[in-house]
Design a protein around this nucleic acid. Sequence first.
DNA 1: GACTTTCCTGACTGCCTAAGTCAGGAGCGC
DNA 2: GCGCTCCTGACTTAGGCAGTCAGGAAAGTC
Lengths: 152, 152
Amino acid sequence: MRVSAKADYAVRAAVELAAVGEDGPVKGERLAEAQEIPLQFLEHILLELKHSGIVRARRGAKGGYWLARPADEVSVADVVRAVEGPIANVQSQPPEAIEYRGSAEHLQEVWIAVRASLRSVLEQVTLADLASGDLPSIVDDFANEPDSWAPR
Amino acid sequence: MRVSAKADYAVRAAVELAAVGEDGPVKGERLAEAQEIPLQFLEHILLELKHSGIVRARRGAKGGYWLARPADEVSVADVVRAVEGPIANVQSQPPEAIEYRGSAEHLQEVWIAVRASLRSVLEQVTLADLASGDLPSIVDDFANEPDSWAPR
DNA sequence: GACTTTCCTGACTGCCTAAGTCAGGAGCGC
DNA sequence: GCGCTCCTGACTTAGGCAGTCAGGAAAGTC
């Protein structure tokens, strides 16, 4: 139930690209500096983002990275899945594939609900939302509840 | 963003205890068989549950484990936290402790919302709910949406 | 066409966690 | 005191996480 450094980095780099917009390719070094991410590690991440079609790249002078699609068509879930694989797996299996015995029978529905609730946030928020700071209401609602900020 | 085997086992064992109710202590071996969990591993897990006050135990003949509190006062979140630690940490830090620079500034609110949405499910569901199969509406609502069952 | 720049890729590392197993010790009830 | 059951630490094996290193391949520049 934790978010890896890789996923965090990937989203931050993608938002940075969204913020730059159409102003030509951005080189890895600049992304790394802007978000304080180790350059070599970031390049591996950007490669994965490229392989899953979220980002494009060109080499050489004037080269760099840019978003393959408009920023409002890329969700945080897309980015996280690209580097971490399926969201909310249980024991490396998707929740719908698990069978529970006896009194734990209904646990499956709980894991399904967990995954759905994660999706309801991550699939709603786009890179454009993040770059503009104008977040969807579901995020605002949760974030405005003081209890959400309490550690536990 | 995945649920460990340990957390899954812990919840299943706890539900089993909830289902048995007041009928005296249940031995580890029986829990292990009922839920098909490796016995030795399960005993380590039960020990952790004991240390965090969710379960009690007695040794010797007629010994075994039972819930320390009524089943409707123990949430799935309690059990998961007991074995996995804080839910939804980012890079091993709670989301409220992270500072983001530049265009990623609002990412913090997204992680906060992610955690809050997880809590809204996991803290709502109790062991009693699971044992009876009568799940809270938030779980039902998510589980009844066909899209929630689609892999992705 | 050489040179520089930037991405692309695989191999490697060190550390940590996950998912267990093994062996023995300690308390409880009879 | 004997058997049962929990309790605990040490150990293992595999794999993932978070990077680093070294070199190669395309794109643009002079």
